[in-house]
Design a binder for these strands. Structure first.
Length: 575
RNA sequence: CGGGGUGUGGCGCAGCCUGGUAGCGCGCUUCGUUCGGGACGAAGAAGUCGGAGGUUCGAAUCCUCUCAUCCCGACCA
């Protein structure tokens, strides 16, 4: 490709509304342009990258035996009503009506559609297992789209859905997808980690997310310093900080704390270690509970994990915090003075709270706290559960090492769905006994457009993008110096361009009549992995200048050898 | 949904407080001089000042409404 025929829509200045580097660079390098909030046009350069990622995904999915389909982006409401999600799904679902006032949505995901397909097309266990996938545009009406294509409303996704006769078969497909995803992200040149994820209210036994490690990631993941354990903080199991409670030394006493309404104020005003404070959160109770509300206790410096809390049967799902009025009415004290002692509603203590001695908590009387509370002696320990987010330094749940915390960008998610959709939509096949069996399902997603942003987030410098070779829009930038005035340079450039192109290398020949610095800056901004400079000087010696995007020095290479040299570099996947 | 910010040629911004009929940088077009790290000079094209209404002799500027967009927050006592 020649720059004279390929628009490089680069910008020198940073667009005002781009926050993170990948978003800024995607705009500056001319990969994308914003149309409206969360909606982006991919320019020719960006499309080349997108297609590279798509090709890798497709190759590896095909290799795994999955079969490509293409489903409609617009989906009839009836199927969503059948699965129950027409009501469950919130405002994220973009609902539409056609000219006959029939209801549709723009698909944020395709479980209903694929299940409808499967129940019609699959009749026998002999057709299983089967895994369908597509690469297609999704729309989710995000509360707050941000960071360019990282969290946009419309985005390109690879989604796959497997149908299996039983759990063992599903597990096998799931494992196969796990290795397939690892191959895909490795081939994309990403540093990533598979982590255990919350399987959510949808049910299902297992779920892993694939995260690209990056400071700007929106997810927080915890992993063991020694073992293999890695999990999304939403999911990571929080063990008690110590195996058992130390013996209590203090006796319980009530203290006037008129100005301590938060844990921080309590700690500051009474010189009290935050590890010996307990906060009491009042939430709506689950349906089986007699009380309307239930109290959750976590240590003062810990955060409640809402996903864990609402998965408890005693707690209403979705989680709902009591209002100040409800708290006043139920307990007789305001939110700043709550605690387990003399509490008129049931309460669940986090594991760490259960092993804390001599702790302080509200007295359920406004402006008063108890200090030196001990379980058993002062208040019975009713129930213990894992309620909190892990923090750095917690013991790792696999028993080896402690937990570290890092940020990640979720680029893939694999999920054992089980029978949620197949049950609701009656997707069965006949088993070997001729009996109808509900199929069990898995689903497997990759955010293709997000992968592009994640790759940049992970690999860039002050000058621009540094593409992993496998997804770079071009592999080699060929920059002739003064081509418009030097017949020799022009001829050498054309010859080398022909040679490299015929070797199957994707070359971008910069045949614009611009100054060298301009070319260098553009090529570095758009992140082409290999750069060849052709000039009178080096041609005198029969050489060209080579520089990898990751390097800061040129090396001189014989003109005759450069083709082989590049081919070697590319086949090694080095950049 | 709550709070805050911003809307002025393609992009980045000034002008607004104190009303007088729009300007700078980048980019773009043409010509000339340049030519190995984002050149210089000259000439040019390009803006319903987000939209509607109002105040005024006169509104980018003041007032009201509205739309768009970005950031922060969305119950952790």
């Amino acid at each position: 490709m020649r720059t004279s025929q390929f628009p490089l829509q680069t910008l020198k200045e940073n667009p005002a509304d781009a926050e993170i580097s990948s978003h800024q660079l995607m705009l500056r390098a001319g990969l994308i342009r914003k149309l409206a909030a969360g909606l982006y046009t991919w320019l020719p350069l960006g499309v080349r990258v997108l297609k590279k990622v798509e090709a890798i995904v497709r190759e590896e999915m095909d290799r795994s035996g999955a079969l490509e389909v293409l489903m409609p982006a617009v989906q009839p409401a009836e199927l969503w009503q059948e699965s129950g999600r027409w009501e469950e799904y919130g405002p994220e679902l973009l609902r539409l009506k056609d000219r006959h006032q029939r209801e549709f949505c723009f698909g944020p995901t395709h479980e209903e559609i694929i299940t409808e397909l499967a129940r019609n097309e699959l009749q026998s266990y002999k057709q299983l297992p089967i895994n369908f996938y597509q690469i297609q545009t999704k729309f989710r009406d995000e509360i707050r789209p941000r960071f360019g294509v990282m969290r946009s409303r419309e985005f390109l996704m690879k989604d796959a859905y497997s149908f299996n006769i039983d759990q063992a078969s599903l597990q096998a497909t799931y494992n196969l997808m796990h290795t397939t995803y690892s191959r895909i992200f490795s081939r994309c040149g990403l540093t990533f980690r598979a982590v255990q994820a919350d399987s959510g209210a949808i049910g299902g036994s297992a779920s892993h997310e694939f995260h690209v490690m990056a400071e700007s990631g929106e997810d927080i993941i915890a992993f063991s310093t020694k073992g293999d354990y890695a999990a999304n903080v939403e999911k990571a199991e929080a063990l008690a900080s110590v195996p058992e409670a130390p013996p209590g030394k203090e006796s319980m006493k009530m203290v006037d704390t008129p100005d301590a309404r938060t844990i921080q104020q309590l700690v500051d005003q009474f010189d009290h270690p935050v590890e010996q404070t307990v906060k009491t959160l009042i939430v709506a109770a689950g349906e089986e509970e007699e009380a309307n509300f239930i109290a959750l206790l976590v240590r003062g410096d810990h955060d409640l994990n809402e996903v864990k809390a609402q998965s408890l049967p005693q707690v209403a799902s979705p989680l709902r915090f009591a209002t100040d009025e409800e708290i006043m009415e139920t307990i007789g004290a305001g939110p700043g003075s709550l605690g387990p002692v003399n509490l008129p509603i049931p309460c669940i203590a986090d594991r760490t709270v259960a092993v804390t001695a001599d702790f302080s908590a509200g007295a359920n009387i406004d402006g008063k706290h108890y200090f030196g509370i001990n379980w058993g002696r002062d208040v019975p320990l009713q129930e213990i559960a894992d309620l909190r987010n892990v923090i750095e330094g917690d013991p790792s749940p696999d028993g080896s090492g402690t937990l570290q915390i890092a940020r990640g960008i979720e680029v893939g998610h694999i999920f054992q769905l089980g029978k949620k959709y197949s049950d609701a939509m009656n997707a069965t096949v006949l088993d070997e006994n001729g009996r109808a069996q509900t199929m069990t399902m898995g689903c497997y997603g990759i955010g293709v457009s997000r992968v592009v942003a994640a790759a940049i987030e992970q690999s860039h410098d002050a000058k621009g993008v540094i593409w992993p070779a496998s997804i770079a829009p071009f592999q080699v930038a060929l920059l002739p110096m003064k081509m418009s005035r030097s017949q020799r340079v022009r001829e050498a450039a054309e010859a080398l361009y022909e040679q490299l192109t015929s070797r199957g290398i994707e070359v971008l020949l910069d045949d614009r009549d611009v100054r060298p610095g301009f070319m260098f800056a553009d090529m570095e901004l758009i992140g082409i992995p290999h750069r060849i400079v052709l000039g009178e000087r080096s041609l005198d010696e029969g050489k060209v200048e080579y520089r990898a995007r990751t390097q800061s020095e040129n090396s001189m290479i014989e003109l005759e050898r450069i083709g082989d040299f590049l081919q070697d570099a590319l086949s090694q996947g080095t950049s």
